[in-house]
């Protein structure tokens, strides 16, 4: 169907789409309902990678022992999405497709070097998460393509996730951060850090990661991070707040207990 009418908007849990529709900001008028494609709901290990079907709901992620064991920060992120009703309907594929810079699971996928699996009538292609977003709410997904799954290679090291919302539930993030910190060695440690709500898309922070890897002091790493991100003032928060909180969360992550 998508091949014949590539402009159809795929929908699954509708937790974002329906809000936009009701709000009158959605131009789309024709939709393709994927909700009953149970095949796309599987969470399994495939060739060493954690493979998550695009229609896996946040509740599925929270309940999955595989996710909790291999990628606890993803379960933590899923628990922070909306409220229970949203978690029951919303899907990881939808979160990725919606391409909001504030998407709760996106920093986790970015930090974990996830791969987005896209399928169309002609075949499958795999896009590294890092290259999936091209700008504010823009992705490389072509009309006629569906996101069918996410693949996450094995992760080694301590995981961290923290969402700072506007309240305890039903909140859009002011800043959201995920990170993986490898074991410390004499010459520093590997680190992968991703943030949401500080740029038009979810971002990795390579300079900060490099500073962490080089064994620089936490203060120096914090300074690098504050320079590297360019958040804005908006309805939900201020640039200064986002910068300072990002630096604090990073320090908590590096120096404090794990909260994955």
């Amino acid at each position: 169907m998508l091949r014949d009418e590539p402009t159809l908007t795929p929908l699954a849990g509708c937790t974002d789409l329906y809000v936009a529709l009701n709000f009158g900001t959605l131009k789309d008028t024709r939709f393709l309902d994927l909700w009953r494609l149970d095949r796309l709901r599987k969470i399994e290990l495939r060739g060493g990678a954690l493979s998550i079907g695009a229609l896996a709901t946040f509740t599925d992620l929270i309940r999955s022992t595989l996710v909790r064991k291999r990628l606890p920060m993803l379960a933590a992120a899923a628990r922070d999405v909306g409220g229970v009703q949203i978690q029951n309907r919303g899907t990881i594929g939808g979160n990725v497709a919606n391409a909001s810079p504030a998407g709760d699971t996106l920093p986790v996928l970015a930090a974990a070097d996830a791969v987005v699996v896209l399928q169309q009538a002609g075949g499958i292609r795999r896009v590294p998460f890092d290259g999936f977003y091209t700008g504010y709410r823009q992705t490389v997904r072509r009309p006629g393509e569906l996101i069918v799954g996410i693949e996450i290679p094995p992760v080694r090291g301590r995981q961290f996730f923290r969402k700072v919302g506007t309240r305890a539930a039903q909140a859009i993030s002011k800043i959201v951060m995920a990170g993986i910190l490898g074991p410390a060695t004499g010459s520093g440690r590997t680190a992968r850090i991703a943030l949401g709500s500080v740029a038009p898309t979810v971002v990795r922070v390579p300079r900060t990661e490099a500073a962490l890897a080089s064994g620089a002091s936490i203060e120096a790493v914090q300074r690098t991070l504050m320079e590297e991100i360019a958040p804005i003032d908006d309805l939900r928060s201020t640039a200064e707040y986002r910068r300072r909180v990002a630096a604090n969360l990073l320090a908590r992550f590096v120096c404090g207990a794990s909260r994955g």
């Binding site: 809000v19 409220g83 506007t166 309240r167 305890a168 539930a169 039903q170 909140a171 859009i172 309805l235």
Partner: peptide, 27 residues
């Protein structure tokens, strides 16, 4: 602690429940 009407050019800029934050039970 939470409820803030953001006025921009005389217009409420956050006139929706997503961005005008009232406490939930958890808050």
């Amino acid at each position: 602690l939470l409820e803030e009407v953001v006025m921009r050019d005389g217009r409420m800029a956050n006139a929706q429940l997503t961005n005008y934050i009232i406490p939930t039970t958890l808050d």
